[in-house]
């Protein structure tokens, strides 16, 4: 299977999914009107990845903004990762937020509470 490498735009995030390394990164802005269109290929990739995942998958979430339309899709991404974890593989999610961005920190805490993966909250300077 191919890796995913997508450049970010004003409304959609940059995405880098590397199967060999087990490194998944989503960054930037995720505010498309129709987020399902954008996330569907990512979720399909994760379904294939789940068949032969790396022993350790490291997920870096470096979002600047995301809309509520994306929030459900992001939850779906985490649900796929949660089932990979249940199959016995290790998953680390690093949730990055800018210093003082309480809203982004809280958003990460929301997912952390819903999903059975321990999130690492990473504060970065503005």
């Amino acid at each position: 299977m191919d890796n995913i490498k997508i450049e970010g735009t004003a409304k959609t995030p940059s995405v880098s999914f590397d199967r060999e390394k087990g490194e998944l990164t989503i960054g930037g802005r995720s505010i498309p009107e129709n987020s399902i269109d954008f996330y569907k290929p990512l979720l399909e990739w994760l379904d294939r990845y789940a068949l032969e995942p790396a022993p350790l998958t490291v997920v870096n979430m470096r979002l600047e903004y995301f809309n509520t339309s994306s929030s459900k899709c992001i939850l779906d991404v985490f649900k796929k990762l949660e089932s990979i974890k249940k199959s016995g593989k290790d998953i680390t999610v690093k949730w990055h937020y800018e210093e003082d961005d309480e809203d982004m920190l809280e958003a990460g805490e929301d997912y952390d509470a819903i999903i059975d993966i321990d999130f690492v909250m990473v504060e970065s300077p503005v």
Binding site: I36, N67, T68, S69, K72, L75, D110, I114
Partner: peptide, 20 residues
């Protein structure tokens, strides 16, 4: 409320599921 609507997984055809 936000967390519970997000977690219940229902998705409207617009994608937002009433979270806006």
């Amino acid at each position: 409320l936000y967390k519970s609507v997000l977690a219940d997984g229902k998705m409207s055809d617009k994608g937002g599921g009433g979270l806006g």
